[in-house]
């Protein structure tokens, strides 16, 4: 009995020793030489492996950052400036600060604004629906609402609201990785600067039809009337193919265009409600978003402009 026990223990010990020696030599022989800085850079990465930087995951980002001469054109949208600073420190290089970005959905076609003209009965995929036909509303440019963006988002930051049929971006979760932008077959989603105090303005429509056609399809469509273009003091707005676009690098958030827009196609996000005028006729989206963020400090409408100028 004790012999058996002894024999077993001895066998196991010898076997273990032998295998350890084998492992040691194999590890030595097949060791891959790597720049140790790659591991260091990877350690400060967010680790989401979202591919938002254009590389296949955080490890690939780190490799590219280490191999390349400068950090120009290499940016981790998830980690933002904080992570890029750390990466630059590790590599002893300079990095330019970038304004934080966020995804915006440029469509106002809620179920109310944009009546359905057909019933889509295919699989829940915008890509499939887009390849099949113009979409289940009169607007050929608008959101199809099947949630390809939602499925593409690695952070759960964009979700289709069943009440409106439109995706909504949670700006606290959104890292501007751009996966939703790539996933949307209609090209509705755009990455824009988050803006001071997260306040930003954009034209929430992609309809390039003539005014009447666009209006017929959706009551909140941009009709290309050019009123916003005329009223903008900063030349930030251009109208092309019956569609207005606000250049976020020029916009100073004065909200003149917002007041002027006859169809409420322009959205102003995270502004506090205006005391008198806007209370009477607030755009439904703005009101909703303002309500969503009750904790925002109340500020004069002109403050963002001033702050922008001070910078």
């Amino acid at each position: 009995m004790s012999d058996t026990l002894l024999f077993t223990v001895l066998t196991m010990a010898v076997l273990g020793l032998l295998l350890a020696v084998v492992l040691y030599f194999v590890a030595k022989k097949f060791r891959v030489e790597e720049d140790p800085r790659i591991d260091e850079v990877e350690s400060v990465m967010p680790g989401a492996n979202c591919g938002g930087c254009g590389f296949a995951g955080c490890r690939a980002f780190a490799e590219n950052a280490v191999m390349s001469e400068t950090l120009d054109g290499i940016f981790c949208p998830v980690g933002g400036n904080a992570v890029m600073k750390k990466v630059a420190e590790k590599l002893g290089r300079e990095v330019q600060e970038k304004a934080p970005m966020v995804a915006v959905v440029r469509c106002n076609g809620t179920c109310e604004n944009r009546p359905r003209t057909s019933i889509y009965d295919g699989c829940a995929s915008c890509k499939v629906e887009n390849a099949l036909y113009c979409g289940d509303t009169g607007c050929r440019y608008g959101c199809l609402g099947n949630g390809d963006c939602e499925r593409a988002c690695p952070f759960g930051a964009i979700r289709v609201n069943p009440a409106t049929g439109l995706p909504e971006v949670d700006e606290n979760l959104c890292t501007a990785c751009g996966n939703c932008v790539k996933a949307c077959p209609k090209g509705i989603i755009e990455l824009r600067t988050k803006g001071p105090k997260n306040r930003r303005m954009y034209v929430s429509c992609m309809n390039r039809e003539k005014g009447g056609v666009a209006r017929k399809a959706c009551s909140a469509a941009c009709i290309g009337c050019r009123k916003c273009e005329k009223v903008c003091p900063f030349g930030a707005i251009t109208v092309e193919d019956n569609l207005s676009y606000i250049d976020f690098t020029k916009c100073r958030l004065c909200r003149k265009c917002f007041d002027e827009c006859p169809t409420h196609a322009i959205r102003a996000v995270n502004f506090p409600p205006r005391p008198a005028k806007s209370a009477a006729a607030p755009a439904p989206q703005t009101a909703a978003e303002a309500v969503e963020k009750p904790g925002l400090p109340k500020a004069e409408p002109s403050t963002p402009e001033k702050k922008e100028e001070q910078k």
Binding site: T117, S118, I119, Y120, D121, G122, V128, L132, D136
Partner: peptide, 8 residues
């Protein structure tokens, strides 16, 4: 009424 649309 609105027609049903789906792929084949």
């Amino acid at each position: 009424r609105n027609l049903i649309i789906s792929p084949s």
